[in-house]
């Protein structure tokens, strides 16, 4: 019996086995998004704690350094020195890695999904700038985080070096003469904010809580959280640079 070739010009994909286990679920495109949402949420919680901690700088050198010291000694003597901080670092590192892994693999899937691009520039109908800069924004944010760690955590690129007290490092870092560092921080933090603006909304949608009637509130909440974080983070370097803190 004569049979035609299938309509498609490539072999039809087989239906994947439905018996795949639950862990495999997270390797589906939706599963990866869930991984991004959960790890993103962990990172946002960290950022909120981080911002609150940063603001302690306005209470003075003592408070700020004490807070920094407390982070390392919390739980002592029940648990060894720096246990809490190390655990947090591990969690954050794993979260960042998973977030990046999921992002890269989704980006790759997306790129493969459209091998031929449009000649006419596709119009963005949603007009939400943030949604279209997640990937590039994410890379910039990552570079910033690396710089930031080298700067204020390890002190490698900090004028005071790694052993100085936290307060001194901050003041030295954003000294008025180093205005360009401050500018870099401000720009980077705004990018983080844009990333969060869509990220928070997106997480709610991905975790299954998005509904038409909730969207305005979710968008607003995402905007407010992102804005507060940006203000919180930006305030310290700016205040140092303009001399309010010294």
């Amino acid at each position: 019996m004569s049979r035609s070739t299938p309509v498609a010009t490539r072999p039809r994909p087989k239906t994947p086995s439905p018996a795949a286990g639950p862990l495999k679920r997270y390797r589906s495109s939706v599963g990866k998004k869930a991984v991004m949402a959960v790890t993103g949420a962990i990172l946002v919680l960290f950022l909120i704690a981080h911002a609150i901690g940063n603001l302690k700088v306005f209470l003075g050198r003592e408070d700020f350094d004490h807070y920094s010291h407390w982070l390392r000694s919390v739980g002592e003597p029940a648990i060894p020195h720096r246990t809490f901080l190390t655990a947090m670092e591990v969690v954050l590192t794993v979260a960042v890695l998973l977030h990046i892994w999921a992002a890269i693999s989704l980006a790759r899937q997306a790129r493969q999904a459209r091998p031929v691009r449009y000649a006419a520039r596709p119009k963005a109908h949603e007009n939400r700038y943030a949604t279209h800069v997640m990937r590039y924004g994410g890379i910039v944010v990552l570079l910033f985080v690396i710089w930031h760690l080298l700067d204020l955590t390890f002190g490698a690129v900090n004028p005071k070096g790694g052993d100085a007290q936290p307060y001194d490092k901050v003041i030295a870092d954003f000294d008025p003469s180093r205005w360009y560092i401050t500018l870099f921080y401000v720009v980077a933090v705004i990018l983080v904010g844009l990333h969060l603006r869509h990220g928070l909304f997106s997480a709610v949608q991905t975790l299954g809580w998005g509904r038409q009637r909730r969207y305005p509130a979710v968008r607003l909440a995402a905007d407010v959280v992102a804005a507060l974080l940006v203000i919180g983070f930006v305030s310290v370097p700016v205040m140092v640079t303009i001399g309010v803190l010294n």
Partner: peptide, 26 residues
Amino acid sequence: DRVVKMVDQMDAEGFGGCTNTGECTA
């Protein structure tokens, strides 16, 4: 069962993943 099978098939067909941009609905 339906959602698992349909999402797997969607991925197997070579579509990209959703990044919640909302262009589709628009």
